[in-house]
Design a protein around this nucleic acid. Sequence first.
DNA 1: CTGAAAGCGCTAACAA
DNA 2: TTGTTAGCGCTTTCAG
Lengths: 337, 337
Amino acid sequence: MARRITSLQVAERAGVSQSAVSRVFTEGASASPATAAKVRRAASELGYRPNAMARAMITGKSRMIGLVVAYLDNQFYPEAVERFSNALQERGYHVLIFMASPTVGDGVQAVMEEILDHQVDGIVLASVSMSSSLSTHCAAHGIPVVLFNREQNDPRMSSVTTDNHTGGRTIAAHFAGLGHRRIGYIAGHEQASTQRDREAGFRAGLADAGLSLATRAVGGFVYADAREAALAMCAGADRPDALFVCNDHMAFAVMDALRYDLGLRVPHDIAVAGFDDVPIAAWPAYDLTTYRQPINRMVARTVDLLMQRIDDPAHGADRTKLTGALIVRRSTTRAPA
Amino acid sequence: MARRITSLQVAERAGVSQSAVSRVFTEGASASPATAAKVRRAASELGYRPNAMARAMITGKSRMIGLVVAYLDNQFYPEAVERFSNALQERGYHVLIFMASPTVGDGVQAVMEEILDHQVDGIVLASVSMSSSLSTHCAAHGIPVVLFNREQNDPRMSSVTTDNHTGGRTIAAHFAGLGHRRIGYIAGHEQASTQRDREAGFRAGLADAGLSLATRAVGGFVYADAREAALAMCAGADRPDALFVCNDHMAFAVMDALRYDLGLRVPHDIAVAGFDDVPIAAWPAYDLTTYRQPINRMVARTVDLLMQRIDDPAHGADRTKLTGALIVRRSTTRAPA
DNA sequence: CTGAAAGCGCTAACAA
DNA sequence: TTGTTAGCGCTTTCAG
């Protein structure tokens, strides 16, 4: 097993100094075309590639971004991971991925420490909340953090979200327009900003139409729990005629419960709407009306924010709220627009 | 923005040498309880954590594993990513994730180079094929590679798979036992070893029962393509009465097409079976009979193989084939076992 | 433009 | 057990 080729070996073969080799492989360093040619030739003959870690030690830039995610069962997150990886790869960055077990209390804390050990240039927290002491800690380290699909009270914390309040409100208006009167809501994890904002917007939208929430249950963003919540809410005769579920992943559980456990028809007996517009929402088995999160723009914006702060650490925090779109499908209407 | 604390600063504060600090934070190094205490105290006061990169440069071990995945829409892979991340984190390793665009021809090649630049200690290729020249390249670098859910002809290449041949055969026996006679198959990507082995096993199983394949189409592991394949295959009167789809992800597309485009009932008009047993397969909307891949054991074995080779680079290749299990649900039987 | 030399933060001999 | 010393492979002054 051959040891890895170093710049020194390339230098020897090319008949130049080691620093000349370095310059040829360093963006924006000066080397004459002649030297560059010699070096590149020797390098490719030897199969040389610069050692990213050694480079990182010098420059203080690892070109790695830490990505913390919690629950990959919800298709929204694998999608986000894929896009982050691609977007960052395009900019010459790579993704160090971490799972934050939602079960462990200080899971995020521990994970963050490990990430920091690896000298990442920035961190994306996808749908994970962080104690404010931890965010201070990161700020002290001067390492940019952006929350993705989550907000926090701390105004120094950058975040990128969809305008969840407007999303909830839009769903409410959609229900009201359809003539529904007895309306239910299935909540996500109570602490999550997405949950709070969507519910607040939904309630506001109902109020706009002179309505109010008839019934509410908690699904905690988990399939099995959402199923239970739906069963509890809809088994009786006083069930709602329309149901907003805080995300698509839970909405699938709810539709399954309504149809296969309770024998109800969607939307005839109960209209169901979700939030996210993950690919499965478009599958005919669900054909789910939902409020689409502009995931491409969300990822792009998150990456931009991160790059901004990496290039200029003094750059202030930014809380971006992007606008989504109501996608009407057959889970709320017989003949969608 | 404070510069990161170094071991030197801790040493000064603790009144010991820098190497004493290093030893306290190095597994299996000797330090007296007294020094250790002083050092740990100073370290925690300063908020010191060892720089993983600097350590990696010395030891030659980065404690990072590169994980290459292609298509996260198929729920099998997010699941695998999550488990890999957890399993490796437990052993003190971290995951550098890379998406291999299946569209780009030499995507894997390019991605591998970038991974190698980061001095990872090992690589997991999840469902990605690699040219044999590339595997030679890796072997030359002495970096362990394990294929996950994919095999390759090169016998020096370690891999972990389910016994796909047996899986296919088991599905065939299940169909035969149910009395189906006109049987179809929807293939994945033709080059994939999983596809080839499952189909071969399925054909062998049909032959065992004195049957043979009536019709075949290609879905390439992609939802939309599988849907088209199903429509083409089942629109006519000569449609099959049972259909084995090479993985669950495509099986969902097939069931959707049969039910919502063609108005057929599953399993009454056509029985459908898949492969993987992803969580969605258990959702009542599909309730899919499938051959379960033992994903926990697959991941554990892959990690073991990797660790083995990292600890002893001379350790030979191993091609592990794990046994799965037939999971019978309502997509093939009215009343499952 | 180029080479020599000084480290980045840490671990691993080596003496003491 | 400790401190001293020599690097890991690279980038970056600094002279020339």
